[in-house]
Amino acid sequence: MQQIINFVFRNKTFLLFLLLFGVSLFLTIQSHSYHKSKFIHSANYLTGGVYKQVNGVKQYFNLKEENNALLEENRQLKMLLYNIEIDTTNYSTLDSTYLGDLYKFRTADVYKNSYSLTKNYLTIDKGKKDSIKVDFGVVTSKGIVGIIENTSRNYASVLSVLNTKSRINAQLKKSNHIGSLTWDAKSYEFVQLVDVSKFAKVKVGDTIITGGQSTIFPQGILIGSIDSFYIDAGGDTYTINVRLFNDMTNIGHVYVIENLNAAEVKSLEHKIDE
């Protein structure tokens, strides 16, 4: 017994090092799996508060661009509003009259944004208090941003599309060929659409939109345009380089989308799994 105690005392630095290194490795590995990064995230009281103060100053530098973006969005919405009769043929498949009941939109400010790491997150100023929950989609007027991963009372952290963990269901706008959106961590301008069937007619410049298969995003939210593509080693699928419409380095205001039917769809799919 005496020897054990002596051993611990002699090697206490090494043992402490092992313990702390183990704890940080555990936290790292946990942060690599989706929905498990529960302890360490910037959506808590302290960090959210700090980022809030800084954002209060930072917002002023982008006022002009933000205003232009809002004007542009207003213009698009006005076009939609006044041309709705002419365009009804296009919407017959989407049944726009039900869209209001299916999805709920909330606005939020981005407090923190990162795009230079391999696992990027954003922090927004809405949380549980504003009924933001895990797995809500986050978009801007130009395109998708990410998915809510953690929430606290006043803040939420968003898993960015620029995260090697992120997998979002997406499709070609022209045909219904689907794939999943991933990121290879090389450039913040491009994301990769993988597992697209080789029967799809892929052309450079075509638009990629979200697919209707997930319960997170509605179908048809803009993602980006095709920059280049190649056939995988297996020969059955395409990997497509997608240039994002969103400038991920400059995101001020976002919309959080709640799918009101998500619980119903999920419980149905859960039954199939069993």
């Binding site: 630095t13 402490l16 090092f17 702390l20 290194f21 704890v23 940080s24 490795l25 555990f26 936290l27 790292t28 590995i29 946990q30 942060s31 690599h32 990064s37 360490i40 995230h41 910037s42 808590n44 302290l46 960090t47 700090v50 990162s114 790491l117 696992k119 997150y121 922090t123 952290s157």
Partner: peptide, 26 residues
């Protein structure tokens, strides 16, 4: 060793990076 762990953890919490800074600091 202990203070470095705290330092790394602070950076990790702010930048949503799990425990990578803490591990490197320790």
């Amino acid at each position: 060793v202990f203070i470095s762990f705290l330092l790394g953890l602070c950076i990790d919490i702010f930048s949503d990076s799990g425990g990578v800074h803490a591990a490197a600091c320790v």
